[in-house]
Design a protein around this nucleic acid. Structure first.
Lengths: 338, 338
DNA sequence: CTGTTAGCGCGTTCAG
DNA sequence: CTGAACGCGCTAACAG
């Protein structure tokens, strides 16, 4: 008795058992044509007896499609994009499509390999979540498969870029602090090679300008979007000995780090320091205190990306959807004291 | 000029362009046999000209394999399993395999559908991350494909269960609190239909028993492993008006909720209350204060699951690996005060 | 060394 | 209605 799994049942075996031709089995499976009740019964019986499951791969080969779309994410374990992956999975599932997730690990070379793998597996489209590949290469891939890409503005045939208005949202976040009476507002910015990070810094600048608050570059520190860098950046800010009563951080993860640094220095949030993040990660509702932040429509982003991809595959027109960012005011921000 | 992507180049087209037979192209692609340099050059030139990428799907059909393994996760956006997914991806990638991730959404019916989809796509094995499907059904699937399953103890041919010793780790966590001098220790348990949750409660009980501390059922509240339920559970515990100075929570997410509830009641951590979680999610290093918790080897779990699957596919023997849980002492626990 | 033939599992003509 | 024959893209066995 062998432990290994038995070889899959084929359509032909079903046909033999039901004493009909393979075509008849196929027709019943796909409802392609009318079949007499007697044969149908025999076939259904055989399918049940044999526990037959059609081979979707072979089916796809014959039909010329794979019912799958590739998704390049930088890190499948990223807290930020997980909800997006779910949105993609959900929208694709409705049309019988499956996502093929691969991680680029923030590495252009690796990302190219992954892209090649996806193309080799004949995915019908590729969704790129903030890739590291350069625009030109990406554009050339668009000749082979339709592309939906987030986090950058890429124009071209067979390509749809989905962007969110980070600048405006950062403006609103900063403006919120200003309206609470804060005038000394620091910023922990993200890595500047990242367009989102640049735009958030820009929104911060615009809000200060509109309020007539002079921009002080010493109140801007830089991080890499991870918690540790937020902690470090806050310590740098504190080391300048400049006073500030509010802090806008370019993403929630760095805000967590900054919040811990404040805690270590016994600076209270929000009493001594108002803190605002960006992203609204699931955990931000349960930080102490709950974090005021900008909600990114991460799930919808995935949903929309998946739906757009489906339309592109079907050869339909697609247009850039409007995905609003939203300021979520919780308890880490408060009116300036004294 | 059409916007759509052009149809993929086939091996046959390459052969025609290089004026050789398809087999020769195939041989060059796979290094199956020696080919004269002249033909090789011609073929390589044709491949470059046409930008040919072999169709892995068709290749798999001919070869009888798909180079893919299915992974059933309950929620692809779960903070807990993401690192595991990464571990699976990494180990599989080394052998040229790709994971096909699907979400079961904690729903047995949906999970069965997903399993069927994976089988239809002819994955060569399935890794089930804490599934909702019943044991019997799972065992029957093992006849078709090798299974690696976590979070439950299932014996059978073609099946490997990977379990972690939750009971022992929970014992150690509780014991740590006892050694710090705490005697009134509450517990927020997870959903009891979940074997991990039951084992953690059991470990808590054993530690109390060993220390000669009488078990008080009123000091045990129950949650659903999510943040909100942790917050609620803590409020319930407080409502009993029983005093306790330490709290062991069955997972980090509920610990976050409990921590917020404590903050809302101005109960300080760790001065007034020692808090310990379970899982060591990435965020636990940056809570205020950083959370003492039990580290689950989530990445290694995925790595090990992937490697075991590869061995099963190759028909080799596999054995249950030893994956230790580890208590990580940070700042949310401290010695009991006067 | 290399071309021809057959076949992977299934869908789809095309005749009956 | 239904079966035979052919093709999807590629590899393998078989002759040269």
């Amino acid at each position: 008795m062998d432990d290994r799994s038995s070889p899959p049942v084929t359509l032909e075996e079903v046909a033999r058992r039901a004493r009909v031709s393979p075509s008849t089995v196929s027709r019943i499976l796909n409802g392609t044509a009318r079949v007499s009740d007697s044969k149908r019964q025999a076939v259904e019986q055989a399918i049940a007896d044999l526990q037959y499951h059609p081979n979707e791969i072979a089916r796809g080969l014959a039909l010329g499609h794979t019912m799958s779309v590739g998704v390049i994410t930088q890190d499948i374990s990223s807290a930020f994009y997980n909800e997006t992956l779910k949105g993609i999975e959900d929208s694709l599932a409705e049309a019988g499509y499956s996502p093929l997730f691969v991680s680029g690990h923030w590495n252009a070379t690796k990302e190219m390999e992954r892209m090649a793998l996806l193309v080799a597996r004949r995915v019908e489209g590729v969704i790129v979540l903030t890739g590291a590949i350069d625009d030109e290469t990406l554009l050339s891939y668009a000749n082979r498969v339709p592309l939906v890409i987030t986090g950058r503005d890429l124009q071209g045939p067979n390509v749809l870029s989905i962007r969110l208005d980070n600048e405006q949202a950062a403006f609103e976040a900063t403006w919120h602090l200003i309206q609470l009476g804060h005038t000394r507002i620091a910023h922990i910015a993200g890595p500047q090679e990242h367009i989102d990070a640049r735009e958030r810094l820009e929104g911060y600048r615009r809000a200060l300008k509109k309020a007539g608050i002079p921009m002080d570059d010493r109140l801007v520190a830089y991080g890499d979007f991870h918690e540790g860098s937020g902690l470090l950046a806050l310590n740098q800010l504190l080391a300048t000995r400049l006073s500030f009563t509010a802090l806008f951080v370019a993403n929630d993860q760095m805000a967590y780090g900054a919040r811990l640094a404040l805690h270590n220095k016994s600076i209270r949030v929000p009493e001594d320091m108002s803190l605002i993040g960006f992203d609204d990660l699931p955990g931000s509702l349960y930080t102490t205190p709950p974090l005021t932040t900008v909600r990114q429509p991460v799930y919808d982003l995935g949903k929309v990306a998946g739906e757009a991809m489906l339309r592109m595959i079907a050869g339909k027109k697609v247009s850039m959807p409007d995905l609003p960012l939203q300021l979520i005011v919780r308890e880490s921000t408060t009116r300036k004291r004294g």
